[in-house]
Nucleic acid binder design. Structure first.
Length: 719
DNA sequence: AGCACGCCGACT
DNA sequence: GTCGGCGTGCTC
């Protein structure tokens, strides 16, 4: 009797052993299986074929796949992730599967059909027998749908007995059924490529000539034509019969980019983004897995797409925080991608105008090769940056010239809170250590950490006073102030409130590009990857938040944001200007940014990181805990620190040190108390050895069951 | 995680 | 005398 190891979706550090059904074939590694676990049935993935005899084994209930859903390549990547992030293999594998396959469905996507009325059907609507009301209704719907017809889903929704009715109509040749090919973007590759700058040509040549594993950091100022370099590289990959994987941050997956790929490359493009249904996403995944897609474009989770002919990976905006998953299995898609490239022995390209200090550290260590694009392409020059108290005259001048203005509100954290003039009450959230923000339009106070909301009070809940005022520079307040100052200007606001509507964000950007808008007010969202050729002035409201923060990464993030948003100005032939509103115009960080000297800023910041023993000169692991009862989280971490001491001596030989457990900067969130314990190390090896043993001890602590806790390797967000 | 088992308070 | 609280232990 043969036995197999199955990784089940549970926080277990090992796979479980099952007997395989003697009547059916032994499942292959990577196949999905249904297995009994306690008293329920779960979907697991075969992790190994073993023969270790154990007492009282349960039998696999059902083998779902004859070929592996998790290909050997993805399996190796997932195993590495499980080790590196100290996360259960079963849960990593669930993440690597497309959502659709986390259910007991067959591996190939179901076939999809479209239905449309034939000419004969259209002529026959009226001659159907009077009793055939359902058939008539369905046929009429199809005739009304015209030559496009209806999707299978839409057709089935017409009536409860649709399958039967459709079959009958088809048999009488009143309708025609066509199979829909798997959704992908056919690439046309017709457009003639533009001339490359010397730096671009050098980059393309250097990277394109590499066949085996190497990591390239393309460090190019905004507007230096990084995308053009990607296009050339991808075209080359496709020409050689290989597949390319292009990962972008959540927000950069724009129709603009897809359009550019479509015009320039040939072959087929599969797009994996969050807007797809599970089923559509699975179909795109399948296309990639079958080797039928030449390019896969996607966000974070697309790093786990199986690609049999993979020849190159490109990570655009590699510094972007959205590549790091911030809950559950906390992986960083960039780092997973680098490992994947190494395992597959292919080149990988990381691109950014504002590289992460981690990547610059890897350049310094000789692990990554840096490729610089120091100049903007064409005539476009870098905008002039002023550090000012927000200048209304500058806006007026631009509007007078019929140019566009972009007003960037640095952080949502500066959203307006309500406060009482009489007793200085402010609108705190009951469940979090945070202020609730004012949403004027819906007359609500909302907490953007836990999502709870209450109606906006008309009197102070504390003293009954009637003088309640908004405080802070929210996008809405800035919008209102600008509308007051410039009554004739057409103003749009772009923040997550506006973006939550499907397609509304892209529609808004289209309007800006068509010149139907004079002033754009927005948050982060406007700083990423969108080109607005007619914007010649960018204003940054309240840039100071990142200058003095507890998080050691705050200056890095502020600089990246400012540089990225400044890059939105003057992309066409007109010179751009940037105005940064600050109380500290002498701050060295800001002065460097004024000179567009991100690399100078980074060098200085690196020096400070080195002295303070912070990344990239140290490796971090954060033990996070949260509890319902006030002190449990912190007490658990205190116990964990004690439990860690012997392991420190045993395996870390001074390379690893434990900081003191502290309450999180925002201690209460969604009604839970949160705390964290930072572990620093000078060597990865020692750190991983330590964490492995330490976690086993933590699991045995008495508080471990009452506290929700998790390990975060390479944390990017200390708040 | 998720689910059962097990040992102590307010209800039929 | 039971229903149900959540502490704790295990999942092949």
């Amino acid at each position: 009797v043969s036995t197999v190891q199955v990784a089940v979706p549970a926080p277990l550090r090992y796979a479980l052993v099952y007997r395989s059904d003697p009547d059916s074939q032994t499942p292959v590694v990577g196949a999905r299986v249904l297995v009994p676990l306690r008293n329920r049935t779960v979907l697991g993935v075969v992790a190994a074929a073993t023969a270790s005899a154990q007492p009282k084994l349960k039998t696999i209930a059902q083998v779902l796949d004859t070929e592996p859903a998790i290909t050997p390549e993805i399996f190796r990547v997932a195993s590495w992730c499980s080790d590196y992030y100290h996360h259960a293999l079963g849960e990593v594998l669930q993440t690597a599967l497309p959502g659709y396959l986390r259910r007991a469905v067959p591996l190939p996507p179901p076939r999809e059909f479209r239905y449309r009325a034939t000419d004969r059907g259209a002529r026959s609507v009226d001659s159907l027998p009077t009793g055939a009301t359902v058939q008539r209704r369905v046929l009429e719907a199809l005739v009304n749908a015209g030559s496009d017809g209806l999707s299978g889903e839409a057709a089935r929704q017409l009536t409860t007995r649709s399958a039967d009715v459709l079959r009958r109509l088809e048999a009488r040749e009143f309708l025609q059924r066509d199979e829909v090919p798997i959704n992908c973007v056919p690439l046309e590759g017709r457009e003639h490529p533009p001339e490359l700058t010397a730096a671009q040509a050098e980059a393309v040549e250097g990277i394109g000539g590499t066949a085996s594993y190497a990591t390239f950091l393309v460090n190019g100022v905004t507007g230096s034509g990084k995308t053009e370099v990607y296009l050339r590289l991808l075209a080359d990959v496709v020409e050689h019969g290989r597949q390319g994987l292009l990962l972008v941050p959540e927000i950069s997956l724009t129709p603009q980019l897809i359009e550019r790929l479509r015009r320039r490359l040939s072959g087929r493009l599969a797009v994996l983004h969050s807007g797809l249904t599970d089923r559509e996403r699975h179909r795109a995944w399948w296309l990639a897995r079958q080797g039928d897609a030449d390019i896969v474009l996607g966000t974070r989770s697309a790093v786990f797409t199986p690609l049999p002919r993979l020849g190159m990976i490109i990570i655009d905006e590699e510094h972007d925080l959205s590549f790091k998953q911030q809950e559950g299995f906390r992986y960083h898609a960039r780092d997973v991608a680098v490992k994947r490239a190494q395992l597959k022995n292919i080149p990988i390209v990381l691109g950014s105008a504002t590289p992460s200090l981690e990547s610059l550290g890897n350049v310094e260590r000789g692990r990554y090769q840096e490729v610089r694009l120091p100049d903007r392409t064409g005539e476009a020059s870098l905008p002039t940056v002023h550090l000012v108290d927000l200048g209304r005259d500058a806006i007026r001048t631009r509007l007078g010239r019929r140019e566009q203005v972009l007003v960037f509100v640095n952080r949502r954290g500066f959203a307006p809170v309500l406060y009482c003039v009489d007793c200085s009450w402010h609108s705190g959230c009951h469940r979090c250590d945070a202020r609730m923000t004012l949403h004027r339009r819906s007359r609500q106070l909302r907490c953007h950490y836990c999502g709870s909301s209450i109606a906006m009070p008309s009197r102070c809940p504390q003293c009954g006073g009637e003088d309640l005022r908004p405080l802070g520079e929210g996008t809405q307040r800035v919008e209102e102030a600008l509308a007051h100052q410039f009554p004739d200007a057409r103003i749009v606001r772009v923040d997550s409130d506006v973006a939550s509507g499907k397609g509304r964000l892209e529609e808004t950007f289209q309007r800006v590009r068509r010149g139907e808008v004079d002033i754009v007010v927005g948050t982060q969202m406007v700083s990423k990857g969108h080109d607005f050729p007619d914007v010649t002035l960018v204003c940054v409201v309240n840039a100071d938040g990142g200058l003095f923060s507890l998080d050691f990464r705050a200056p890095e993030r502020l600089s990246q944001q400012l540089i990225q948003v400044a890059g939105r100005a003057g992309r066409a032939e007109r010179h751009g200007e940037v105005m940064i509103q600050t109380l500290f115009p002498a701050a060295p960080q800001l002065i460097r940014l004024q000179r567009h000297d991100y690399n100078g800023f980074a060098a200085e910041e690196m020096r400070e990181r080195r002295e303070a023993h912070y990344p990239p000169y140290a490796y971090l692991v954060l033990l996070r805990a949260e509890s319902v009862r006030a002190d449990d989280a912190l007490r658990f971490l205190t116990d964990a620190a004690v439990a860690g001491k012997p392991h420190l001596e045993a395996c870390a030989d001074g390379a690893v040190s434990l900081m003191d457990p502290v309450p999180s900067p925002m201690e209460r969130r969604a009604g839970r108390y949160r705390a964290q314990l930072l572990v620093k190390a000078t060597r990865r090896e020692s750190l991983h050895r330590f964490v492995r043993d330490w976690l086993a001890s933590c699991e045995r602590l008495p508080l471990a069951r009452r506290v929700r806790w998790a390990i975060d390797v390479d944390p990017t967000d200390m708040v």
